[in-house]
Each structure stands twice: as C-alpha cells, then as structure tokens.
Amino acid sequence: VATDGHRLVCYNRSDYKANEYTGDIIVPRKFLNLLSGVLEGKESIQLWMGANHVTASLGSDMYFSRIIDERFPDFESVIPKDNDKELTVDKNQLLSAVRRVSIFSNRSTHQIAIRLTKDRIQITTEDPEKSSKAQEEIKGNFNGDDLVIGYNASYLKDILSHVEGDQVVIKLKTPISAALFYPATQNENSNLTMLLMPIRLND
C-alpha cells in the first residue's frame, strides 16, 4: 500500500511463501524504486525482515534498507465500500484525451472536469488566467445518473498509466467522494485497487 493523501494504491498478491512471518513494515520509496529497476524479467525475490532493516536477495545480489519506525495510516477505512456508480472505458482513449485536454489546464491546479452520461464521457478544462479552454468527448459505459466530477489531471494520468489491460473500471459515488480504479480483468494471483480523491470544481 502507498499513499500521499490524494492517491492510494493497494496491491495484493497470493502466490508467495512466508516462513510464519506476519506483520506490517514501512519501507522508503527509494528502496522500492531501486528494486523495481532490477526486478524486471526476474522470476522471484527473497525478503528478510529484521527489527530495523529489510533485506532483499535477488540472485547473488543483496539490497538493504532501513525500516521506517512510524505508524501507517488506516488505509482500509479510507477505501469506500459503497461506490455504486460504475464507469467502464477504454483506458488508452481516456488517458489520451486527458493528456490533450490537460495541456490547457491551469498550471497550478491542473484542474479538469469530467462529465459522465450513459454512453459519453466529456473532458473539459478552462483557465481564465491564460484565456484557454479545451474539450474532448469519448465513448464509455456509465450505469449511474449523470455526474460531473473534478480531478487533478496529473494525478489522473498517473493512475491511468499504471492500469494494466485495455479497459479500466472506475467506481464512483458523488462529486466529492473518492473514486476507485481497477483493471477490467484482474490477474489470477493478484488484485490491484487505486483510489483518487476529486477536487472541487470552480464555478
């Protein structure tokens, strides 16, 4: 699990073995970035958890990191359980549209608005400071009442770019509630949930 207060990612895997270890640890982001760079194409990795350090073994290479002695936020209470509106859309089409529209968004807020109807998604932005605005429309499948919700385009692009597969499923509740993002098809031994907080739209 990782979060910055605006976004949250929860990734679960079941295809691993542990020697009776149970518990939670917090590790620095730099350590995970380092491992992600050397793990590509590798089949397995071994991890050892100590009192103050974590060790990763990959072949003949060993990587060490300190454990952060802090309490992680109660992320399970943040993930909504009652998002009853569901949008299914082509991930690449949505990501491309957000990228193009966001070029004209405010440089500070990166604010965009997404209007959802039964089979259409309209993405708009307007920046009075630069007298610029943009609008795009793509197809989608939305099973709720019409909804307009605002997002930081940079955060939204980041989440969409990490969704595997061609389709993304987005579960929503209200314009001020957190949205949940999932791949349309989850892998057999893993499960990915991403959360994004909306922003209030300017009148």
Results as ranks from 00 to 15, higher is better:
Ala113Glu: 00
Leu172Asp: 07
Asp203Lys: 07
Thr124Tyr: 06
Lys171Phe: 14
Arg100Asp: 04
Pro28Leu: 05
Ile112Asp: 07
Phe142Val: 02
Lys118Cys: 06
Met197Cys: 01
Asp24Pro: 00
Leu180Ala: 07
Glu129Trp: 02
Asp61Lys: 15
Asp146Met: 09
Leu8Trp: 11
Phe31Ile: 01
Ile103Arg: 11
Asp127Cys: 00
Asn189Gly: 04
Ile123Thr: 02
Leu94Lys: 09
Ser108Asn: 13
Asp69Tyr: 10
Asn83Cys: 04
Lys130Pro: 12
Glu188Thr: 12
Asp203Glu: 13
Asn83Pro: 12
Thr88Gln: 05
Leu47Gly: 03
Asp145Arg: 10
Asn187Lys: 12
Pro128Ala: 00
Thr117Asp: 02
Asn143His: 09
Ile112Leu: 12
Glu164Ala: 14
Asp84Leu: 05
Asn187Ile: 11
Thr109Gln: 04
Gly41Ser: 03
Gln167Lys: 15
Asp61Pro: 14
Leu196Gly: 05
Tyr155Val: 01
Ala113Asn: 03
Asn52Tyr: 09
Tyr11Gly: 00
Ser102Cys: 14
Ile26Val: 05
Asp74Tyr: 08
His6Phe: 12
Asn52Cys: 04
Arg99Phe: 15
Leu34Met: 04
Leu39Ser: 09
Glu76Cys: 08
Gln167Cys: 13
Asp166Phe: 05
Arg99Asn: 15
Gly144Cys: 05
Val9Leu: 10
Arg66Cys: 07
Pro175Ala: 01
Phe104Trp: 02
Ser14Pro: 02
Thr109Ser: 10
Leu156Val: 05
Lys42Asp: 11
Asn152Gln: 11
Tyr11Trp: 13
Asn152Met: 06
Ser190Gln: 12
Gly144Ala: 01
Pro128Phe: 00
Ile114Asp: 04
Leu58Ile: 05
Thr109Arg: 05
Lys173Tyr: 08
Asn152Val: 00
Lys139Ala: 13
Lys133Thr: 08
Thr22Gly: 08
Arg71Tyr: 06
Leu39Gly: 08
Glu164Leu: 04
Ile25His: 08
Met197Asn: 07
Glu20Ser: 15
Ile159Ala: 11
Leu87Gln: 05
Glu136Lys: 00
Leu39Pro: 15
Gln93Cys: 07
Ser44Leu: 09
Asp203His: 06
Trp48Cys: 02
Asp4Ile: 01
Thr22Ala: 09
Ile176Cys: 09
Lys118Thr: 08
Gln46Asn: 12
Leu156Ile: 02
Gln122Cys: 06
Gln122Val: 11
Phe104Glu: 06
Arg99His: 10
Ala178Val: 08
Asp145Thr: 12
Asp127Leu: 02
Ala18Pro: 07
Val9Ile: 13
Ser65Glu: 10
Ile114Phe: 01
Tyr63Asp: 12
Asp61Trp: 15
Lys85Asp: 01
